[in-house]
Amino acid sequence: MTQLHHSAGEQQQRASHAALASLLNLTLLPGFAFIWLLLNLKKCSQDGIDRYHTVLGLKLNLIAAVALLVVTGLMILAGGLGSAWTWVYVITYFTMVHSLFILAAVWALVRAWAGQKLTVR
């Protein structure tokens, strides 16, 4: 019984670490925090909250990479660096979408702290 409780606590802690890594990858430590997420995945339980938040973090960051880097890259390719309109779209889009990903990661973090999945009870 004690062992099970301890295990659940550990899962919750790993879930919190995964959510924090996801947030850090979107903010202060892009790349490095993604490696942390991948390393976290190895330590996760088969079907616990830790795996859920690690996989969620990986998915969120991969989608963010596409939405931020690929889409803005395409905008620049299409419009060219010398066009004022390229910068209008790129800066406005990047700032707004990046902020939304950060907010999603913050929500995931507080859910992980509470040992809950992303969806509201």
């Binding site: 910068w87 209008v88 800066i91 406005t92 707004m96």
Partner: peptide, 18 residues
């Protein structure tokens, strides 16, 4: 308000550039 901000941001970037 989000749209007001986005429109003013767009206006500002274009203004700065030109």
């Amino acid at each position: 308000m989000v749209f007001i901000t986005l429109f003013l941001t767009g206006a500002g970037i274009l203004q700065v550039y030109l």
